[in-house]
Design a protein around this nucleic acid. Structure first.
Length: 267
DNA sequence: AATGGGACCTGCGCGC
DNA sequence: TGCGCGCAGGTCCCAT
């Protein structure tokens, strides 16, 4: 499900809803999503701890606990955090809170990963991350592209290059910058690189403002849909008319991912 | 270094 | 109605 805007949305809502609350009990319905430590230890070490802080790094959500440990949550494709949770057939872990309500962790496809660690900064995933667009200057972004001949769209999805951008927003930003997703990164003009950098940040900001894109499984912490999907200009719009020029949006596969673009506006 | 494929899983919508 | 196929907001691993 989630890219940077969706995870940021959940992070902000968690801050409002569960900060300072105690986790009284952890019920593991499906141990598969718990990657470390063992589900038993996971359960035991979290129970009794208070939620001290909520962080986000790219698409990773990090919950700091009063016992000095960090709960790192990667939602991957279909993970959800719901509060107050009602339980469903997709609920894999239930965190019972001192409020008397539950924080449900749901995940349809069982790709998501929960880790309880001493130091989140030492996670392999974290150490391999490139900078988020918001932590980059345009100058630096331009330099990074200059040495890459990879196709620009797969490059934007490479988390070791730039982190936080996923398939929806890579497609949207490229449309807005009028850049063909198959162009080699180092073939973009200075102007195009600037435009792409700005549209990338702008798209992410707008998506955050609308609390993310609900295409399939993603929902806000409350369980409501995010509001940004109706503003998508190309993502999931194959064969529909381009909103600018009416020519049908095309779908191709790049780097194994669905890629949507306007053959005219992004020639 | 870059690219492609498959793997991890489950479920949905589509065409037949 | 039922079946098989392709597809899915992510990432990792292996082969060329």
């Amino acid at each position: 499900m989630p890219e940077l805007p969706e995870v940021e949305t959940i992070k902000r809502e968690l801050e409002k809803a569960v900060l300072g609350k105690k986790i009284t009990k952890v019920s593991v319905i499906n141990p598969k999503v718990i990657k470390e430590p063992s589900p038993k230890e996971f359960q035991k070490e979290i129970a009794g701890a208070t939620i001290k802080n909520i962080l986000r790094k790219a698409k990773l959500l990090i919950i700091e606990l009063s016992n000095g440990k960090f709960l790192a949550i990667h939602l991957k494709m279909t993970g959800q955090l719901i509060y107050p949770g009602k339980g469903s057939k997709l609920t894999r872990v239930i965190f019972s809170l001192s409020s008397g309500k539950d924080l449900d962790f749901n995940d349809g496809r069982l790709f998501a990963e929960l880790r309880l660690v001493d130091d989140w900064q030492k996670l392999k995933f974290i150490q391999s991350l490139g900078p988020e667009p918001f932590d980059l200057s345009c100058e630096h972004f331009k330099k990074m592209l200059a040495s890459k001949k990879t196709k620009i769209k797969p490059l934007l999805l490479d988390q070791t290059f730039i982190s936080g951008v996923g398939n929806i927003y890579a497609n949207e930003a490229l449309f807005r910058a009028k850049i063909n997703p198959g162009r080699p990164a180092n073939s973009l003009s200075q102007k195009e690189k600037e435009l792409l950098f700005n549209e990338l940040k702008e798209t992410l900001k707008e998506a955050i403002a609308h609390k993310g894109s609900s295409v399939d499984q993603y929902v806000q912490l409350s369980g409501e849909d995010g509001g940004y999907a109706k503003y998508h200009k190309v993502y999931d719009r194959e064969k529909k008319p381009c909103l600018k020029c009416k020519i049908p949006i095309q779908r191709i596969s790049l780097g194994g991912r669905g890629t949507y673009f306007c053959p005219h506006c992004q020639a």
